[in-house]
Amino acid sequence: MKSVILSTVVRLLLPLILLFSLFILLRGHNEPGGGFIGGLAAASGWVLYLFAFGSAEAKRALRLEPLHFIILGLTLALGSGLFSVAAGKSFMQGVWLDAMVPVLGKIGTPVVFDVGVYFVVIGIVLKIVFALAEEEGR
């Protein structure tokens, strides 16, 4: 079901969608958005890519295994909680950097946690979709 129009559009659209998902993720603390929505948006972009080019091509473009996204995300989320413990607070209590970082705004462990959620959501959606697509492709 390869379509020239679709593949051309997707090639242009995917970077935009990914950038948009990052934007949703990072503004989540103060505006509507966050890890869940950002992750779903990014995953949708890749699903679109999969429809346009097939799962093998999509996997190559993704470079990382979906499972690795899940592991990375869980590690970030757990690590942000443990960081608070290392900083002498209780587990998952927020630790914030005083200075403002350009573009990103205020940085603290809850932001890192949200990034972890983002990666986990991308990982599970892609894991499931890729698995199903490969199953049906055979």
């Binding site: 869940f36 959501v121 599970i124 499931i128 698995a131 199903l132 199953e135």
Partner: peptide
């Protein structure tokens, strides 16, 4: 909602 999505994916594959 997000957990529901996980459940749904699992169900679909299970039925399959």
């Amino acid at each position: 909602i997000v957990i529901g999505f996980g459940l749904q994916a699992f169900l679909i594959v299970l039925v399959r």
